[in-house]
Design a protein around this nucleic acid. Structure first.
Lengths: 148, 148
DNA sequence: CCTACAGTCTGGAGTGGCTACAGACTCAAG
DNA sequence: CTTGAGTCTGTAGCCACTCCAGACTGTAGG
């Protein structure tokens, strides 16, 4: 497979499921190398470029930042020596992801509760959801301060 | 409480836990009204401004977009009539939050698994984490395709 | 009154990671 | 030759801030 020596940007886009504009953007910021060109300045890619771009796309899907992807690309191809560093990058990122999940879950809890109160019709004169935003009760930071 | 008729932007910033630049930004985009000014063009706020900004800050902490906050601000003060609309805004946003949680959990699973494989030293010649990014296995979209 | 120094002012640029668009060129088919 | 799809470059826009430079103002101490 992948015997075609040279493909255009459209074909690369299709194979790596990455928009053309995004490919050009990655080239501009130096995430992927500038490819060869035809006489009329059309970009020419090969199988290596496809694999590299798919690597980038997968790393991005896992939420790695562009800088982290850059580092991972450098580590790729270094064999087992790169494992410790790659693991550290992933562990850092995992911590980040877990933090974001925690943030979103706090929002989810607060929103769910506010919506439930609206459904229960706790207040006939005002909206419990708006009420929650108007006072500290809707604050998503801490679950319940109680005794301050 | 909040008897002080007029406070400066610094005091508002402290009370609403919102950076001065952000307050000015909110004013620029019309999220909060332009306040009165002193002779030397210093902004002057009152208790209403403090409460409104705290409302904005809490809504933002729940992840509502600026446009949603704008809508919520309009709904606030309309009493119980606003409840249906406010509920809809919150429900929409909750769906969004839940989707993002699902995305992040997929990342979390994939990252956790990749890190575990690194720790288990599955491959002596290359890093399992890099391997996963280099092949479809690390794809966070579907759990396992199996029979295609 | 003068000097520090903290507070505030405006306008503009930068962040991340794309995405969209305008306007020109190129290439293959009919 | 024309049509339509593909590609090129460069630039601007998105979200929600955040930060900076450089000028002004307000206040406390000497």
């Amino acid at each position: 497979m992948d015997r075609a020596a040279s493909i255009g940007i459209g074909e690369l886009s299709r194979r790596a499921k990455c928009k053309i504009e995004t490919i050009r953007y990655y080239e501009r910021i130096g995430l992927i190398p500038a490819p060869a060109r035809t006489a009329s300045r059309y970009r020419l890619y090969d199988g290596t470029d496809v694999r590299r771009l798919m690597f980038v796309r997968r790393a991005r899907e896992l939420g790695f930042s562009i800088d982290a992807v850059r580092a991972l690309l450098q580590l790729a191809g270094l064999g087992a020596d790169a494992c410790v560093e790659a693991r550290a990058l992933a562990a850092d990122h995992l911590t980040d992801v877990q933090g974001r999940i925690a943030d979103l879950k706090r929002m989810q809890r607060a929103l769910t509760q506010a919506i439930r109160q609206c459904d229960e019709g706790k207040s006939a004169t005002s909206c419990p959801l708006i009420e929650a935003l108007s006072s500290d009760a809707g604050d998503a930071r801490r679950p319940a301060p109680e005794g301050v």
